[in-house]
Design a protein around this nucleic acid. Sequence first.
DNA 1: GCCAAAATCATCCGAAAGTATGACGACACA
DNA 2: TGTGTCGTCATACTTTCGGATGATTTTGGC
Lengths: 148, 148
Amino acid sequence: MKRQILIYGACGGVLIALLKLIEYRFLVIEHSIEIYGGLIASIFALVGIWLGLKLTRKKEVVVVKEVAVTAAEPFKINQEKLTSLGITKRELEILELIAKGLSNREIGEQLFVSENTVKTHSSRLFEKLSAKRRTQAVQMGKELGLIP
Amino acid sequence: MKRQILIYGACGGVLIALLKLIEYRFLVIEHSIEIYGGLIASIFALVGIWLGLKLTRKKEVVVVKEVAVTAAEPFKINQEKLTSLGITKRELEILELIAKGLSNREIGEQLFVSENTVKTHSSRLFEKLSAKRRTQAVQMGKELGLIP
DNA sequence: GCCAAAATCATCCGAAAGTATGACGACACA
DNA sequence: TGTGTCGTCATACTTTCGGATGATTTTGGC
């Protein structure tokens, strides 16, 4: 949490600096205050939206999404297997992305974490699934009803 | 959805009006542009945050859809895709073993060929499936109906 | 507030996978 | 008899994976 506050603080500083920069440029060329204000407004609105998104992204409520499956059975994930094997949400998430054929790097980009983190998760996942390879993990996951 | 857009539009209008108001007041009393800009910035940042929160709150809405189930069909391999992509018997065979989670070495042992041969086949297979990884090839194969 | 679990990230290293290229024999088929 | 496809194999090289380990941060429950 401390880190986040620091980051936000830094962003604020940068933005203020940016503000100054824009301000002087516009003052020098004697532009209308409306344009100036509008610009600042839009920039900060965008930043705000980004901030809002960022802030709520992590919350990720424990709502179980019931996605409409095409024609096939709705696929109910096997919660017992999941808990009995001690597989966490994050690990399951990564298993799904692996099954989609993504590389560790791509998974990292998609989840906004480093490739190393993905590797750590997948290693633990493989251990829990007794899999030696990601393809095997996908196969096991399907058999155990962890992924569709 | 239309109503939302209208609401947002109205909000925008109100904000612009507010902007004008603040602008004139501050201009009249000859306040510094910094305060003015900062005020606009913070207002819009807040609005942005609010917007961001509002936009992402929808995520939590759960839509439960019960879809009619079709009985599990025995899986008929898609011969057209197979020929149109120019995938040979051997390559399909290897795709199936890849989907089972076997390594190249294991596939070679099972088919009584060298690992290098397996690699050659899989390379060509990946090219035909536009896949970069074996996991991706498996995913494509499933989508195209080449494997169950 | 404290503690355990979960998540994050890093580094090193070896194994596996994938790319590129060339080669050779078998077989079909025109 | 030449041509093309398929299957086989090899070498060399790059990239990706996976294991092992240690560390820090975040989160959730008590």
